[in-house]
């Protein structure tokens, strides 16, 4: 009798072990996925309106901006760095695109100019960090200030309005029944996934976060890849800026204040290690959705925005606590 119980507990144990060893359970996106599942389940239980298609689409669209910015942030954090300039770069790129459109420049060129400015800012961050050896947090703090200032100079501090009607397509339109920002978000994530998981560059990015000195001594030009990482960060921020300008139909120089913090939150909630080397882009998408669902759900539950901030902060702390427990448990 006792033996039998022991045996069945053993087989349960081995089943659990096998599950734990499976690839999905070991991936850094596992816990975030469980977290998202739990939060969604809670929201469904607490509010019937949550599950409507309209609301879910709404969540996805609201998430898209932060999710796009978080792609670049994931790259930076994977190398063990950080990019605080993303919110300001987003605003700068958005106002430049808006300004050029209003001045009558060719639409494609205006968008390219916005994206180009973002990429250039990112590359500048990268050069300071990789070539000049300055710490990422300081470099991007400085460039955040510079980008914000340039945006205000460019617009004189006023929003730019009067954008051509068709431009609304990027932020508000639909392609094949899917809202354009959501589609853009998925395309960006697909490309980022391909780069990180399937291409040599991605492997180097992880490896730099894992042990930069080993990467350098094995003959990889790690500095080049760090520049690429920050360039991508500037580009995705600028892309989010173009989408935001289109959704608001104006170029807002004060947009995106604090967005870098939301992006860091999404990356970290997505299971990426803040010290680099471990994490995934899928995790970041889950992290961004987790934040979006929380926002939306708490709004539906008519929780005061002040209280919402406290809850979000507490959830981030809880998430890191749980993932640390798991990390130390698996290390032994």
């Amino acid at each position: 009798m006792q033996q039998q119980a022991l045996k069945s507990s053993q087989s349960m144990h081995s089943l659990l072990e096998r599950y734990r060893a499976s690839k999905f359970a070991r991936s850094t996106a596992f816990l975030p996925a469980v977290g998202l599942f739990v939060v969604v389940a809670c929201m469904i239980a607490l509010n019937s309106r949550f599950l409507s298609f309209g609301n879910l689409e709404n969540v996805a669209r609201q998430v898209s901006i932060n999710a796009i910015i978080s792609v670049g942030m994931t790259f930076a954090i994977l190398t063990g760095g950080i990019d605080l300039s993303v919110g300001a770069v987003m605003a700068l790129a958005g106002t430049i695109t808006a300004g050029l459109l209003v001045s009558g420049l060719n639409a494609g060129l205006a968008i390219l100019a916005g994206l180009g400015v973002g990429a250039l800012f990112g590359a500048g961050n990268g050069v300071c960090i990789a070539r000049l050896g300055m710490p990422p947090i300081i470099v991007t703090l400085a460039s955040m200030s510079i980008a914000r200032g340039l945006g205000l100079i460019y617009t004189n501090g006023y929003p730019i309005s009067g954008l051509p009607d068709w431009f609304a397509f990027i932020g508000r339109g639909k392609v094949l029944g899917i809202q354009t920002p959501i589609l853009i978000m998925f395309v960006v994530y697909a490309l980022a996934y391909l780069l990180l998981q399937r291409m040599p560059t991605g492997r180097y990015i992880y490896a730099i976060g894992g042990n930069e000195e080993a990467v350098r001594l094995s003959g990889i030009d790690s500095r080049k890849y760090k520049i690429i990482v920050y360039l991508i960060g500037g580009f995705t921020a600028a892309l989010a800026g173009v989408v935001l300008s289109s959704r608001l139909m104006s170029g807002q120089p004060n947009a995106g204040v604090g967005f870098e913090l939301d992006a860091i939150a999404a990356v970290v909630l997505g299971g990426t290690s803040i010290s680099g080397g471990r994490g995934s882009i899928i995790g970041t998408l889950i992290g961004a959705m987790l934040l979006g669902v929380l926002n939306n759900g708490l709004n539906l539950l008519e929780v005061s925005p002040y209280v919402q901030n406290v809850i979000k902060g507490a959830i981030i702390l809880l998430a890191i606590f749980i993932s640390r427990q798991r990390g130390t448990a698996s290390a032994h």
Binding site: Y204, A207, G210, N211, A214, I220
Partner: peptide, 18 residues
């Protein structure tokens, strides 16, 4: 450990990195 290997990575990742 500090200059040769990326400790948290697999044997495969470490061998083929360069």
């Amino acid at each position: 450990k500090t200059e040769g290997l990326i400790l948290g990575f697999s044997i495969r990742d470490n061998i083929s990195i360069n």
